[in-house]
C-alpha cells in the first residue's frame, strides 16, 4: 500500500517534503504540476540520472564520427581534388562534426532522459488513484511507503490522504 498526501500549493508541498525528511520519514516521490527546484534533495535517497555526462559523451562520439566520416570519404575512399585544396580540408570539414555533435546530444539526451525516468510507461500503479490526474494540473501529492503512512497521516497536515493499493 502507498499513501498520497495531498497539498494544494507548491509552498505547502515543499515545506511538507522538508519536514518529512527532517523527521526521518522521507517521501518516496512527489507528484507535482510544476518543477520544484531543490526539493528533490529531501526525498528518500535515489540514484540521480547523470544526463549531462550522457549528453557530453554522445556529443563527443557524434562529433568524432562526423569528422571520421568526412576524413575517410575525402582522403581514403573517394578523394577529389577540388580547387587544389588538400584532401583533408579541415576548415571546411568543421561544420559537419559541429552539427553532428549537437544532433547526437539532442537525440541521445531525449532518449537518455526517457530511460532515466523509466518512460514511456503509459500505466503506472499510482494512476489507480483518481486524484493523480490532478497532479499534472493543480495538486501536489507526496508519495509515502506504507511504513511511513501512519506518520504522514498524523503529522503532515495534508489537505487529504489517499491510499493506493499497488
Amino acid at each position: 500500500m502507498t499513501v498520497l498526501a495531498e497539498f494544494s500549493t507548491a509552498q505547502a508541498a515543499t515545506d511538507a517534503v522538508a519536514a518529512a525528511s527532517r523527521a526521518g520519514h522521507p517521501a518516496r516521490d512527489v507528484l507535482s504540476p510544476v518543477p520544484l527546484e531543490g526539493t528533490a534533495e529531501h526525498l528518500a535517497p535515489y540514484a540521480k540520472g547523470k544526463i549531462g555526462w550522457v549528453m557530453f559523451v554522445a556529443g563527443a562520439v557524434g562529433g568524432l564520427a562526423g569528422w571520421f566520416m568526412q576524413w575517410y570519404s575525402a582522403v581514403v575512399d573517394y578523394p577529389i581534388i577540388s580547387g587544389g585544396r588538400p584532401m583533408n580540408s579541415w576548415p571546411a570539414f568543421l561544420l559537419v562534426p559541429y552539427e553532428a555533435a549537437i544532433l547526437s546530444m539532442g537525440v541521445v539526451g531525449l532518449l537518455g532522459w526517457m530511460w532515466m525516468c523509466g518512460l514511456p510507461k503509459l500505466f503506472h500503479p499510482l494512476f489507480a488513484a483518481p486524484i493523480v490526474e490532478r497532479a499534472v494540473q493543480d495538486k501536489w501529492l507526496l508519495v509515502f511507503e506504507s511504513a511511513d503512512a501512519h506518520w504522514a497521516r498524523a503529522h503532515l497536515g495534508a489537505d487529504a490522504v489517499h491510499e493506493v493499493r499497488e
Binding site: 516521490d29 507528484l31 518543477p35 537518455g112
Partner: peptide, 23 residues
C-alpha cells in the same frame, strides 16, 4: 509517455531542458 509529474522526472527534465537550450 505516461508523464505523472514525478519530482524525480522533473529534476532530470529541468537539467536536460537547460542543456538543450544551451545547445
Amino acid at each position: 509517455l505516461g508523464w505523472r509529474g514525478s519530482l524525480k522526472h522533473w529534476e532530470v527534465h529541468t537539467r536536460f531542458y537547460r542543456y538543450m537550450a544551451a545547445l
